[in-house]
C-alpha cells in the first residue's frame, strides 16, 4: 500500500462517515519498503492539488517522517530544476514508500484494520458491516 493511498482511505464503518476523526486513519506498527517507480515530475506537481496536506503530515508523522513542509507547496512548476528536490522527495514518499504490514486505527470508533502483504483490509465483521 502506497503512502499516497492513505490520503484516500477512511474508516469503513458507516457511523464514522460524519466524524472528522475517521480520516486519516492512525498508522501503527508499520513495516515500510521502498519500491522503485518511474519519476514523473509533472505527475507529482499536478497531484499536489488534490492532496489533503494536513492528513499527509499526520500519516507521515505516524511513520516517523517529520521533514515535510508544514504548508502545502502551491504552484510548483515541474519544469524548474529548483523544484526537483521537493518533487523527488514527494515522489519517493508518496509513490515509492510501501506500507507492507501494519495497523490502521480509526480515531472515532477505534476499529483496527490490518495491512498484510501490502494490502489494506477494510472488510468489517458482520455486526459492523
Amino acid at each position: 500500500m502506497k503512502l499516497l493511498t492513505t490520503n484516500f482511505v477512511k474508516c469503513a464503518v458507516k457511523a464514522c462517515d460524519s466524524s472528522a476523526d475517521s480520516f486519516p486513519l492512525k498508522y501503527e506498527d508499520v513495516q515500510l519498503v521502498q519500491e522503485e517507480q518511474d519519476f514523473n515530475p509533472e505527475f507529482i506537481a499536478n497531484m499536489l492539488e488534490r492532496l489533503d496536506w494536513a492528513a499527509l503530515l499526520k500519516v507521515a508523522a505516524d511513520l516517523g517522517n517529520t521533514s515535510l513542509p508544514s504548508h502545502k507547496p502551491d504552484d510548483v512548476d515541474p519544469t524548474l530544476t529548483e523544484n526537483e528536490p521537493l518533487l523527488r522527495d514527494l515522489h519517493s514518499l508518496l509513490l515509492e514508500t510501501q506500507i507492507t504490514e501494519g495497523k490502521m486505527v480509526c480515531g472515532n470508533c477505534q476499529h483496527v484494520y490490518h495491512i498484510k502483504n501490502s494490502i489494506p483490509n477494510f472488510l468489517l465483521p458482520p455486526h459492523l458491516a
Binding site: M1, T5, F8, V9, K10, C11, A12, F23, I119, P120, N121, F122, L123, L124, A129
Partner: peptide
Amino acid sequence: IQTNLASSLR
C-alpha cells in the same frame, strides 16, 4: 484495496 464496493474510500 480489500473492501466492499467503495466503502473505506473518502
